[in-house]
Structures are given as structure tokens and as C-alpha cells.
């Protein structure tokens, strides 16, 4: 049983993530009164890319060549550390800081890969990505820290087990920290209002401009990793702050309930994202730090309230 659970745990993020992207794109199309691509389109895109040749810039070094594997690998590692459907699968890898910094390692190499080909867009994309991720990191750590103090552990996989279900007193700090984490999610996954994942304007891109040079398998891995990242942050958002339905044992029924409740909750996050991205405009670049400051203040208040 445990092996089976581990297999589900490890495969969940990479297998489900493209579906999530398909869901968001489909919903956005609906809001624009279009039918949009099928939910499975992201899988087709990836599969197609795996079967294409690659053209790599002659200016690029091994960093460019290896970054996709690191970016993808990092999301698989982190994906396996999450409280996806149960709080019983714990590894020492699930440490809050280990997760945050492992994800940062992926960003580090992705930003370097953006600069590596020497295209002006890649460079400015890296600069923007690092600007945002540099100032968002403090909020990322502290919003999860709120829950960590409540549950008495920084191991995110088992955090939910430490939260007593009926602890109404903690609702306010949790909601505040959740709000802060939502801003972190948007920033870290290059969504609105930080970045426009659909844009075809090379001058406004953040994440996409680092990918302009990639092709074939490496592009597939980079896009897959981005989808994984979105799912990772969504799972963190729903299962750390609202671990309703998550299994605390390894019984078949509770595991099934855990999986379905997570899917449902993540779907809600994606729906909200789709609506958000259809109804607001992207922010000006230099207004984004204000948003991150809001997240930071929310966190400080939340942690202060916990203790």
C-alpha cells in the first residue's frame, strides 16, 4: 500500500499539472465567448514538442542545455514532498526551507538559461523574474511559517496533521497568511497581475521571454515544469491552509477522499485564476512591489497573531 501511495505521490504533480493548464485556458476561452482548446491540449503540445528537433543557440553553454532537466527535476522532487492527499507521507525533504530553496534552485538555473543565449529578451526576462522572486521569497517563507507555528512543525507534508480541525481561533491568521500566499502564488508562477502567460508581446513577457530560445524536448520540459510549479503552489495553497478532506491515515477510502478533495480544491483555485486573468489587466511592473509589500504585511500580522 505504502509503495502504491508513494507512486501516486510522485506521479501526481507531473501527470495532473498539464490538465490544470488546460483547464485554465479552457475557462479563459469560455469567458471570452470562445470554446477554446480541449482540456487535454497541453498534453498534446508537450507530446508534440518531445518529437521535434531542437535548435540551440551557438552562444549558449551547458547551463542552457541542462537547465530544463534541473527545472523539471526540481518540480518533481518538490511535488513528491507535498501534502497532496495525505499527511502521512513524510520525508526530511518536505522541510519548508528545503522546499522553498529547492524551488529557488530551479528559478536560479532558469534565469541563467534565459541569459545564456545572449538574447536581449532572455536577459530582461531573467532580470524581471529574479527581481520578483527576490522580493517574494520572504513572503513565501513567512506565510507558510504561520501554519508551521500553528502545527508545531515545518515539515509541510505533515503540517496538516498538526492542525486541529476545529481550531476557530486560528482562522484569522490562517486567512491572512493564505491571502499573502495567494499573492506569492501569482508571483512565483508568473500569473496575473505579475505576468501574462498568454502574451505574444516579447517586451512585456517575464517567464515566457526566458523560453523564447528553447525548442523541442527542452521547451517541453520547461513548459511542463511551469505547469508543475503552478500545481505545486496551488496544492500548497489549498492543503496547507485548508487541509479539509486530506487523509490522516493510509486507508483506501481516506486516500480516495484525499485525492478527490485535493483535485476539487485545486480546480477551484484554477477557476479563480481563470476568472482573475479574464477580468483584470496586468499591473505595471513597478507597481508589483506594492502588492508584495501587502503580502509581507499580511504575513507579519498573521505570524504575530499566531503566538
Amino acid at each position: 500500500m505504502s509503495y502504491l501511495l508513494w507512486i501516486i505521490q510522485i506521479m501526481f504533480v507531473p501527470l495532473v499539472a498539464p490538465l490544470g493548464v488546460g483547464l485554465i485556458n479552457s475557462l479563459k476561452a469560455r469567458i471570452q465567448k470562445r470554446r477554446g482548446a480541449s482540456l487535454l491540449q497541453p498534453y498534446r503540445n508537450l507530446w508534440k514538442l518531445f518529437y521535434k528537433d531542437e535548435v540551440i543557440s551557438r552562444d549558449a553553454s551547458f547551463i542552457f542545455r541542462f537547465a530544463p532537466f534541473i527545472a523539471m527535476g526540481v518540480t518533481i522532487i518538490v511535488g513528491a514532498c507535498l501534502p497532496i492527499f495525505t499527511s502521512t507521507l513524510s520525508t526530511p525533504m518536505s522541510d519548508l526551507l528545503a522546499v522553498v530553496y529547492t524551488l529557488a534552485l530551479g528559478t536560479f538555473f532558469m534565469a541563467l538559461a534565459g541569459m545564456d543565449s545572449g538574447s536581449a529578451f532572455g536577459g530582461s526576462g531573467s532580470s524581471r523574474e529574479m527581481t520578483i522572486s527576490a522580493i517574494v521569497e520572504a513572503s513565501f517563507i513567512s506565510s507558510i511559517l504561520t501554519v508551521a507555528f500553528l502545527s508545531g512543525t515545518t515539515n509541510i507534508a505533515v503540517m496538516s496533521a498538526g492542525l486541529s480541525p476545529g481550531s476557530g481561533n486560528f482562522l484569522i491568521p490562517i486567512v491572512l497568511a493564505f491571502a499573502a500566499f495567494c499573492i506569492v502564488l501569482l508571483a512565483e508562477t508568473s500569473r496575473y497581475p505579475f505576468d501574462n502567460p498568454d502574451t505574444h508581446l516579447e517586451l512585456t513577457m517575464i517567464h515566457e521571454s526566458m523560453l523564447l530560445e528553447f525548442s523541442g524536448k527542452r521547451l517541453a520540459l520547461m513548459e511542463w515544469a511551469a505547469a508543475n510549479r503552478l500545481l505545486i503552489f496551488s496544492i500548497l495553497a489549498v492543503n496547507l491552509f485548508f487541509p479539509i478532506g486530506i487523509a490522516h491515515d493510509q486507508a483506501v477510502l481516506s486516500v480516495l477522499l484525499g485525492i478527490s478533495s485535493t483535485l476539487l480544491k485545486v480546480a477551484i483555485v484554477y477557476i479563480v485564476l481563470a476568472v482573475l486573468e479574464s477580468t483584470i489587466a496586468k499591473y505595471r511592473f513597478f507597481r508589483l512591489p506594492d502588492l508584495l509589500l501587502v503580502a509581507f504585511v499580511l504575513n507579519v500580522v498573521a505570524i504575530g497573531l499566531v503566538l
Binding site: 482548446a37 505574444h200 525548442s215
Partner: peptide, 22 residues
């Protein structure tokens, strides 16, 4: 790509870089 034709639903999309193109 507009709502009338919505070519995206047939699996066809426009990409920003020739590196990504078929």
C-alpha cells in the same frame, strides 16, 4: 483566433518564437 473562428479549439495556436513553431 477570435471568437468566431477560434482556431485554438482545433489544436492550432500561434507561437511567439520560430523555435516553438511547426
Amino acid at each position: 483566433t477570435n471568437a468566431y473562428y477560434d482556431i485554438e479549439r482545433f489544436g492550432i495556436h500561434f507561437v511567439p518564437s520560430p523555435r516553438h513553431a511547426d
